[in-house]
Each structure stands twice: as structure tokens, then as C-alpha cells.
């Protein structure tokens, strides 16, 4: 260590943070210049220690304490705090709900697929599907009969009205039929009551004409699939797709 390095370490020696205190002390012992610099440093620190310390005013302290007290959070009553579920519990419940929702969606799809594949794997599956198709067709025929019956009722009412203009009769018919919000025409309840009493079966819920016509179209389409109509090839094709969809579900 030379004198320059020693002088750089003088302050650290006083502050007891010197890297090499032994080396600095050795140079101070033999170098008068370094010793003088050390004394000056100590003198400066001693003078600096006489720096007067002033106090802030009581008003300033009072303003600070007032601001600190105004900022304090209002303490929530203990009972209320106990009633409130902890945030981690709320997060766990939310996570559980999301998890159940995510789990249930693919589970339902899989169940449907499983049922279809099980039906396919069993030898009786095509027979069951065929029977279901027959049931749908029979129901559709019933529906067409019901529609014809409805037409008869309408014609009777028209006859009852006599020479009433067609528009008036149509208006009355429209007013007698309840129109649901979705705009589809609903069959009158009396028709279903009559149908259920004649067949002595449990009354089916009123269906929309669209649904029934769709079923009857499906039944018609099935027959047309056997005898395709070239004029309505697109419709029969779609129905063919529909009728062949059931076995394919199982394959997937």
C-alpha cells in the first residue's frame, strides 16, 4: 500500500470500514503527511458533529399525526368479518364450479357417443333404430290425420259462418289461435283433448306445427328415400342424410 491508497482509506479507517486497516495504520506510523491528513479528517468529522440539530414545530407534528389518524382504516366489526367467507374459499368455490362445468360438457357428449356405440355393437341395434323410425313415421301419420281432422274442423267452422268472406273467417281463425312469442302457430288445446280422449292415451304436450310438420316431413322423406323424387332431390337428399345419421352416430 502506498500513500495515495492510504489516504483513500483514511475515512474508512475512522468509520471502521477500511479494507486493510493494518496496512493503513502501518503507513500512518511512518508517513507524517498521511498522519496529518488523518488528523484533518478526524477534525472535520468532529466539527461536523457539532452541526446543530433543530426540531420541527409542534404544529407540523400535529398536522402529520392528524393526517395519519384520518387515513386509518375503519375497523370492520368482528362478527361481520366472521360472516364473510375468506377470499381463498371464494376462489376455491369458483374454481370448483368452473371445473364441474368443464367436466360435465365432454362427459355428456361422451355418454351419448357411448350409448350409440353400444347400440351399434349390439346385434339388435339396427332393429331398434328401425323400430324408432317406424314409431316416428307412425306418429307422423297420426299427425297428418290430426291435421286433416283440423282441416275438417276449419271447414265446418267456415260452413257454419255461411257466406262470410274468406278473409273474415281467416281473421277469426287467427284470433282464436294463440300465437306464441316465437311466431309459430300452436294447435288449439281442444284438438289435443279430443285426440287424447279418442285414443285413451296420455295427452301429449301441445307441439308447434313446425315441429309436427318436421316430423311428418321426416316420415315422408323416409318413404321418398326409398323412391326418390328427382324434382325434390335436394330435400330428399337432406332427409336421406337425416335417416342415415343415426347409424353413423354410433360409428363415430
Amino acid at each position: 500500500m502506498n500513500c495515495d491508497e492510504c489516504k483513500e482509506q483514511l475515512f474508512e479507517l475512522i468509520e471502521r470500514e477500511a479494507v486493510d486497516p493494518g496496512g493503513v495504520r502501518a503507513i500512518l506510523a511512518r508517513c507524517p503527511d498521511c498522519r496529518a491528513a488523518f488528523d484533518e479528517m478526524k477534525a472535520a468529522l468532529a466539527v461536523a458533529g457539532q452541526l446543530p440539530i433543530e426540531e420541527p414545530s409542534a404544529a407540523a407534528d400535529a398536522a402529520v399525526v392528524r393526517a395519519a389518524s384520518e387515513r386509518l382504516p375503519r375497523v370492520v366489526p368482528l362478527r361481520k368479518r366472521r360472516l364473510q367467507p375468506p377470499p381463498w374459499a371464494m376462489a376455491a368455490i369458483a374454481l370448483l364450479a368452473v371445473g364441474v362445468g368443464v367436466w360435465s360438457i365432454p362427459r355428456e357428449v361422451q355418454l351419448e357417443g357411448d350409448v350409440g356405440s353400444a347400440d351399434l355393437k349390439s346385434a339388435a341395434a339396427p332393429v331398434v333404430a328401425e323400430q324408432e323410425l317406424d314409431d316416428v313415421a307412425a306418429e307422423a301419420l297420426d299427425d297428418s290425420a290430426a291435421l286433416a281432422e283440423l282441416g275438417e274442423v276449419a271447414s265446418e267452422r267456415t260452413a257454419h259462418l255461411g257466406r262470410a268472406p274468406r278473409t273474415e273467417a281467416r281473421a277469426k281463425r287467427a284470433s282464436s289461435k294463440p300465437v306464441p312469442a316465437h311466431g309459430r302457430t300452436v294447435l288449439h288445446q281442444s284438438h289435443w283433448r279430443r285426440k287424447s280422449s279418442s285414443k285413451t292415451t296420455t295427452a301429449a304436450p301441445p307441439r308447434t306445427v313446425d315441429a309436427r310438420s318436421m316430423i311428418s316431413n321426416a316420415a315422408r322423406g323416409r318413404t321418398r328415400t326409398m323412391r326418390p323424387n328427382p324434382k325434390k332431390s335436394s330435400r330428399s337428399a337432406s332427409v336421406t342424410r337425416c335417416s342415415t345419421t343415426w347409424p353413423r352416430l354410433g360409428n363415430g
Binding site: 483513500e8 483514511l10 475515512f11 484533518e40 477534525a43 472535520a44 466539527v47 461536523a48
Partner: peptide
């Protein structure tokens, strides 16, 4: 260190 040297010089 510079601050102390300056103070020592000034005072």
C-alpha cells in the same frame, strides 16, 4: 470524503 475535506477547508 470530499464533503469532509470541503468542510475541513471551509471551517
Amino acid at each position: 470524503r470530499y464533503a469532509l475535506e470541503r468542510l475541513q477547508h471551509t471551517l
